[in-house]
Computed example of a mutant assay.
Amino acid sequence: MYQLHYWPTPNGHKVTLFLEESGLPYEIVPVNIREGAQFQPDFLKISPNNRMPALVDTDTGISLFESGAILLYLADKHDMFIPSLSHMGGRAEVLQWLFWQMAGLGPMMGQAGHFRNYAPEQVPYAIERYTNETLRLLNVMDKRLADRPFLAGGAYSIADMASFPWAKLGAQIAGSEVPLPNLQRWVDTINERAATARAYAIADRPDVQNADMTEEQKKMLFQQGASTVKR
């Protein structure tokens, strides 16, 4: 059994995609990041970086933070959505695209979204910088998907689960002005999976619904520094 500490963000969706695809038993523990639940002592015990998602494996007592680490843990423990160590070539393909998303697509798109939608003032250089880098990364994906159905080849994997929630939003940013036909085909394919629909439907639950943020909530989310690290 797993407890998923969750809020409906792209990083939260990554883990629900896996759990719904796998059919593993789990329960949602809402972490309302707009009301400061990520700073509660019990949550910080499992996620010292005060970020969600976090996962508790109630069978082993192991807890994890960082969405990529959670996906890799689940994939290895249950031997699904990643090749085993006996198939190092295929495993390397999955891992490099998983880490590519964690280090590149997610952070760059997060910055683009912040400066485009949430910054208290418009900073043209930042908007251009992060939007352009987002588009560059989406084009890397589009090129990669030109001759294969999924990022690591022929099989759906944790690399796809990690990238999908971000790339889905990115395809909307690109719009029709930046053609990404292979990426759009991949987004549509994953969108059509029944598990994807179930994973995203969790965001409709009353206890995890996002509402418009207040100015105080924006400050809490976007103006953190050393003083916000709870000891």
Rank of each mutant, 00 (worst) to 15 (best):
K218Y: 13
D207M: 09
G110A: 02
A69I: 02
Q3I: 04
N49F: 09
F150K: 01
D212A: 08
M220W: 13
R205S: 12
R91F: 08
V94P: 00
M88Y: 04
I70F: 13
N50F: 00
S227H: 12
Q96R: 08
S63M: 14
K219N: 04
L72V: 01
M80S: 08
H87P: 00
N50R: 05
F65L: 02
A126V: 07
M213S: 00
R148S: 06
Y2L: 06
S157H: 05
Q111M: 15
E128G: 07
L145T: 07
Y26M: 08
Y125H: 13
A146T: 02
G68I: 03
Q40N: 08
F222R: 10
A171C: 05
P41G: 08
L17W: 15
S227R: 04
A159Y: 02
V140T: 11
T134C: 05
R91S: 06
I46K: 05
R116A: 03
A226Y: 12
P206I: 13
A155Q: 10
L85D: 05
G23M: 06
A152S: 15
R193M: 12
V229M: 06
S47H: 13
G90Y: 03
P30A: 14
A126C: 08
V29C: 14
A199R: 10
V123F: 13
P10T: 11
K219E: 02
G106R: 00
N32E: 12
M213Y: 11
N11C: 08
L4E: 01
R129G: 12
R91Q: 09
K218V: 10
D188T: 12
V29F: 10
A54C: 12
P30Y: 12
A171N: 07
Q224P: 01
R148A: 04
I127H: 05
W97R: 00
L17I: 06
S157P: 11
Q38C: 09
T58I: 07
Y130T: 10
R231C: 00
E21V: 14
A199L: 05
L221V: 06
Q224H: 10
G104Q: 02
M52W: 10
R116W: 00
D59T: 15
Y6V: 12
S86V: 01
A162L: 05
V140C: 06
E21M: 00
S67N: 06
Y6M: 02
F99L: 05
Q38R: 01
F164P: 03
Y26D: 07
Y200A: 02
A226N: 03
M52R: 12
I190F: 09
R129S: 15
Y73C: 03
E20N: 03
Y125W: 14
T9K: 03
G68L: 06
W100I: 09
T189S: 03
